[in-house]
């Protein structure tokens, strides 16, 4: 744990019934760092992300955002500073793109309507969709919806962004536009934890790759190191598989 760690995850455990899904996960993130989490299906990646912002409450362990412990009591305030991007976008279906990006600014942070509108256009520009403000989610492609959901999270001015397989629900030809936005964010110095199997993203943007299996962190390190000579055989095997498919 360094002094500059903006997000600290300490010994998180979570069990669903008989199955212990997270068996003591710790890592920390400095400002501007990007960590990519990979691992087989069911290894607990989503559960880990959801324990960080308490969409699932961990059985034990703690999470600190800028040295403030995440608790039930301060959870709404913490969440307003932690962007979360879902696999299936979860845009608000009854609201236009513009209102999707405005509503949490106005209803959570109390930002004035006009200011929220300006911010919304600013974020839409960042994700390359400034002309789609009036569209409804159902009128957009999956890739566009995911970019809007990123813009919606960014408009809250997050300290950290959490991504849970943001491209997995997309047709292959649409993943590129989302990956590009994420790469650009990483370059601009956003602090992010990204669960993804997009190895091109991991190679280019990750400061560190965390490999999870069976609720443990099996291995972690710089992407080059991990990809070229992972010490753990299972890590190597897994990375080879997704490198071929991804």
């Amino acid at each position: 744990m360094t002094d500059t760690a903006i997000l600290q995850v300490e010994n998180i455990r979570k069990r669903f019934g008989d199955a212990e899904v997270l068996k003591g996960i710790s890592f920390s993130l400095n400002r501007g760092e990007t960590k990519v989490v990979v691992g087989p299906s069911g290894s607990g990646k989503s559960t880990l992300l959801r324990c960080i912002n308490r969409l699932t409450s961990p059985d034990s362990g703690k999470v600190l955002l800028a040295e403030e412990e995440v608790k039930e009591a301060n959870i709404d305030s913490i969440r307003s500073r932690m962007g979360f991007v879902f696999q299936d976008f979860n845009l608000f279906a009854h609201l236009t793109v513009l209102d999707n990006i405005r509503i949490c600014q106005t209803k959570v942070k109390g930002v004035a309507h006009d200011e929220a509108t300006q911010r919304a256009y600013h974020e839409l520009e960042r994700v390359g969709l400034s002309d789609r403000g009036g569209a409804y989610p159902a009128e957009l492609s999956g890739g566009q919806q995911q970019r809007v959901s990123i813009a919606r999270a960014l408009a809250m001015d997050p300290v950290v962004m959490l991504f849970d397989e943001p491209t997995s629900a997309l047709d292959p030809e649409l993943t590129g536009e989302v990956v590009k936005v994420m790469q650009q964010l990483a370059e601009e110095g956003m602090t992010m934890v990204v669960v993804t199997h997009e190895m091109s993203f991991a190679r280019q943007a990750a400061d560190e790759v965390i490999f999870m299996e069976g609720g443990h962190i099996v291995e972690q390190g710089a992407p080059d190191l991990l990809f070229s000579r992972a010490s753990n055989e299972r890590t190597r095997a897994f990375l080879n598989v997704i490198a071929e498919n991804g």
């Binding site: 969409l55 969440r79 979860n90 845009l91 279906a93 009854h94 949490c104 209803k107 942070k109």
Partner: peptide, 27 residues
């Protein structure tokens, strides 16, 4: 209303009451 709507609203720091009022109720 798909559960993801509530989850997304809560994930952005909206209280349960507001999520019901602004996100779930209109849908």
């Amino acid at each position: 209303v798909p559960t993801g709507q509530m989850t997304a609203a809560r994930a952005m720091g909206m209280s349960k009451t507001r999520a019901i009022r602004y996100i779930l109720f209109p849908q």
